[in-house]
Amino acid sequence: MLKYTEDHEWLKQDGDEVTVGITAHASEQLGDVVFVELPEVGREVEKGEEIVVIESVKAASDIVAPIAGEIVAVNDDLADNPGAVNDDAMAAWFFRIKPAGGESIDGFMDEAAYKALIG
């Protein structure tokens, strides 16, 4: 099941890990992505902390951690092929995070609520 943030991130729970990427809407707003800087595996992050930098032909943007936890994996393919975000935003995940105790994605928007947000 996918959940969405107001910052246009998608979240997918997979066992005790959450995979995070940006939505197709965010990808379209950014334009052609030319650079992605990912966090280090093993890094402990706080909810709301800026942990990914995305540069496009239009602007530079940050992705914040939607929940607190430990980064357990990053999509190294994006370093060599940042345009994959534009090709398929749902497949081009950025990182996986193991939530800190008590953290959950249950409170985030479902697809219907996200579609209402972006109109």
Rank of each mutant, 00 (worst) to 15 (best):
G69Y: 02
V33H: 05
V36I: 01
A24T: 10
A65N: 00
E103Y: 06
I54W: 05
F35Q: 06
T23V: 13
G107R: 11
V53N: 12
V52N: 05
A59R: 09
F35V: 15
R96G: 08
E49M: 11
V85K: 11
A116L: 07
I67S: 00
A116I: 08
K12F: 10
V85A: 05
E17L: 14
D32M: 04
F35S: 05
A89C: 06
E103P: 10
I71D: 02
A84M: 11
D80N: 12
E46C: 13
F35M: 05
A65T: 04
K98P: 04
D110E: 13
A89V: 05
L11P: 01
A84S: 11
I67T: 02
E40F: 12
G42F: 05
D106A: 15
A92W: 03
V45D: 06
K47D: 14
L30C: 08
S27E: 04
E111C: 06
K3E: 00
A100F: 14
G102M: 13
D77E: 13
F35G: 06
G42H: 03
D76K: 13
V36S: 10
E28I: 04
A84G: 10
V72P: 01
R43F: 15
W10V: 00
V18H: 00
E9F: 00
K58I: 00
A60N: 13
T5G: 06
A73K: 05
G48Y: 01
H25N: 11
K58H: 02
E9S: 15
E70D: 04
V57N: 07
A65L: 12
I63A: 05
N75K: 13
H8R: 09
Q29Y: 12
E6V: 07
A91S: 03
F95T: 07
G119S: 11
E40Q: 15
K58E: 00
N81W: 12
A73C: 03
A73E: 07
F95W: 14
K58G: 01
I63G: 07
A89D: 08
V45P: 02
G21M: 09
A79M: 09
A113P: 14
A79T: 13
V64G: 12
D14T: 09
I118N: 10
Q13H: 14
V64C: 07
A100K: 12
L117M: 08
